[in-house]
């Protein structure tokens, strides 16, 4: 296994390669530099805003379509903006699916929050073991964990379903997993298969490994345990990585579609993405309502992102640590 060579080595944070030597400066180059910096700024803004417009266009399109009538949304060439905004589409979409969207939102929230929390805790401890503990087969086991990312989703569906239904002592099952429906059609059944995430472990391991060993040596002197070091020092220091895991964990859960569809049957516990399916089927789609509902469903993700990206920076400065 090739992994041992990229394990953490000790040493203080330093610049890895020294840059090219300093050029000589004069007053003239100074003014030219200032002008160049200003021009650079303008170009930067233009580029960033142009990029943002490209990125946002489909989102704009989605909102625009969500306010059209059924007739207008099927017009082609399409109208850029709705000729007469149909705000009632949102009310109709909210009421559209069998249980009403309120229930779906609650279900998704339960699944996303619990699922993300469990993934974070198991991911952090596993990543810590991989990044900071010496034991045999460390690299091999890590490779195995990584390999689970490579398993095609289609290969997992049926075995996971069978397992969920045969969990002993759940849903009327006996000790051997027979007789009842196990965790089928429950929140737990929806959540469990996605808890252990190789991506989260990989990301956190990389982040933990990048923290200099000096911190550990220092706290070790004070007699602190691995547990304390992990939660008091390492996690705060790698907040951006931790938040990234939370962000992607949450969004991944929120957007889950196929597994909840297979693992549930009653509308009362199904998540938002299944609610969206009420507007599009094999016999055609109600695009205007689909777009209204999709917009509503995207909002929590966006709010969550805004929250996280602010914490990205704050989390670091609050602890006064810089990698």
């Amino acid at each position: 296994m090739a992994l041992h060579t990229i394990e953490n080595t000790t040493g203080a944070p330093t610049i890895v390669r020294s840059p090219a030597g300093p050029p000589k400066k004069s007053a003239r180059t100074h003014a030219a530099q200032r002008w160049r910096r200003k021009a650079g700024r303008v170009i930067l803004y233009v580029a960033l805003i142009a990029g943002a417009v490209v990125m946002l266009f489909p989102f704009f399109w989605m909102i625009s379509s969500s306010l059209k009538t059924f007739q207008e949304v099927n017009l082609s060439p399409p109208t850029m903006l709705p000729s007469d905004p149909q705000w009632s589409n949102y009310a109709e979409a909210w009421e559209g699916p069998p249980s009403g969207f309120g229930r779906y939102f609650l279900n998704s929230l339960i699944v996303a929050v619990l699922g993300t929390a469990l993934q974070l805790v198991t991911g952090i401890t596993a990543a810590y073991a991989f990044a900071r503990m010496k034991f045999r087969f460390n690299n091999l086991l890590f490779m195995v964990v990584l390999a689970t990312m490579m398993i095609p989703f289609e290969a997992r569906i049926v075995p996971n379903y069978v397992l969920i239904r045969q969990i002993p002592l759940a849903g009327g099952n006996d000790l051997f997993g027979d007789g009842g429906s196990g965790l089928y059609d429950t929140y737990a059944g929806m959540i469990l298969p996605g808890v252990a995430g190789a991506f989260a472990i990989f990301l956190l391991r990389q982040a933990f490994m990048a923290v200099p060993r000096d911190y550990w040596d220092a706290i070790r002197m004070d007699g602190a345990s691995h547990w304390t070091f992990l939660w008091r020092v390492l996690v705060p220091m790698t907040m951006p990585a931790v938040l990234t895991v939370v962000l992607f964990g949450f969004i991944g859960r929120w957007n889950e579609l196929l597994w909840p569809l297979i693992a549930t049957q009653s509308e009362a516990i199904r998540p938002v993405q299944l609610g969206l399916m009420a507007f599009s089927g094999d016999e055609g789609s109600l695009y205007h309502l689909l777009m209204a509902a999709t917009t509503l469903v995207a909002i929590p993700g966006i709010i969550f992102f805004l929250f996280v990206q602010r914490r990205f920076v704050e989390g670091l400065t609050a602890f006064g640590v810089k990698g």
Binding site: T122, T125, A126, L141, V145, P193, A196
Partner: peptide, 25 residues
Amino acid sequence: ERLWLPALYLAPTLVLLWAFDIYPI
């Protein structure tokens, strides 16, 4: 520590990965 700690830290992840990812493959 060398024996038990990594085991403890890794156990939940490995059990879940085995059941839902590795066994299916």
